[in-house]
Design a protein around this nucleic acid. Structure first.
Lengths: 210, 210
DNA sequence: AGGCTAATGACAGTCACTGACAATTGACAA
DNA sequence: TTGTCAATTGTCAGTGACTGTCATTAGCCT
């Protein structure tokens, strides 16, 4: 990797870190692209040559995490039931995700940015749209595992929708609480996934929830 | 209602219709606020006095539909199981929604705009964010029905997430297909909701889906 | 060293949106 | 009916995200 490439990577990383730092401290809406560019001492135009938009910087790290999850699902043994495969895939990949993140930015910074995403309307919207795309991808994977046609059989999409819904609920609860650790999120997710069975079966009024 | 009020309503309706017509024919991104204002012959500033933003016009009608659904859920007899109550509420309220829409714009126009929403990234994102808010509201209603505390018991949110997920899947399938009627959407939703049970129980590989 | 190409900066323009102020217009009492 | 008051609107100027263009700079390769 020659000087040119190294310089490019450095500028991109610097822009990314500057952006995330600003988002986490000052807030997303309160940070202008000019602020980010100025912090790295490049022109605004250069920022837009590295990132398609302000949003892209906020979602750079989350994208890495997504990739891990999708791959983890692909790697699950075909014998597992769909919901079980999804469950194990997320929990397992979250165990490994710390290192992936730390290569780019401090995990603690990422966690603060994650909260900003959940609490900034524009970012939350973008996040949910991306989640929908991911669900489509996962539905295809699940359908393939089970030897079904996604477009003919609704079941893969339904299970994935349930799963995605639970994940999103835990994300929101986590970001609203005060335990910002990755471990806290993992824990919350596991608890909620455990509740899927009880939530769908039996009579709620006669059965307590743990 | 005096002249002043009548005039206001007329301008607002005209702006709304002009916007939706433009979105449906030319596309959302291809329509500028200036275009909409010009079509009604008012200043751009006036547009922003009636609508908080361009998006708001696109979501005006959907908001009415949401309200109907939420009220329909509230009106369900307490004896019904949560998922059953939600199911009946949507299907039933969609039967009545035609008239509500027609008071504002032709239903056919609304259907075309709905497709634009599903196919325009920025609008889809906003739509999904709103859907998340709605789910939160529904979760609270369900929890109340069952005499539970939403913040302590995960089950209401899980059921609502499942339900919302199924609705969103059908919305996307519907908007990708070529039956743009409300009836077609109702039908698709009913079919998918019927599949929730089969999707979550049993072994897919040994059971065909209708 | 010098020519080639990629990266950058500077500049101008578009579009969504906002604040401020002046002009207009309906409402309502005298 | 008229005059006053308040609401509605238009105009203008400005911000912030983004894009296209073109000249300049800087690494690369012979």
């Amino acid at each position: 990797m020659n000087l040119r490439e190294r310089k490019k990577r450095r500028t991109r990383d610097a822009l990314l870190r500057a952006a995330l730092e600003l988002f986490a401290t000052r807030g997303y809406e309160e940070t202008t692209v000019d602020d980010i560019a100025a912090a790295v001492d490049v022109s605004q135009r250069t920022f837009f040559r590295y990132f398609a938009g302000k949003e892209e910087t906020a979602f750079y790290v989350p994208r890495l995490a997504e990739t891990q999850v999708v791959e983890a699902v692909r790697a699950r043994p075909p014998g597992e039931a769909p919901l079980e495969a999804l469950r194990r895939a997320v929990l397992e990949s979250w165990d490994r995700i710390n290192e992936t993140i730390e290569e780019i930015v401090p995990v603690e910074l990422h966690m603060r940015v994650y909260r900003v995403i959940e609490s900034t309307p524009a970012l939350l919207a973008a996040h949910l749209r991306r989640a929908a795309e991911l669900e489509e991808e996962l539905a295809r994977i699940i359908a393939e595992r089970e030897g079904l046609d996604v477009d003919a059989d609704p079941r893969p999409r339904i299970v994935v929708a349930l799963f995605g819904g639970v994940i999103r609920v835990t994300e929101r609860l986590w970001s609203a609480g005060d335990d910002l650790t990755l471990e806290g999120m993992r824990q919350l997710t596991a608890t909620y996934l455990d509740q899927v069975g009880p939530a769908l079966a039996g009579n709620w009024r006669t059965e307590q929830s743990p």
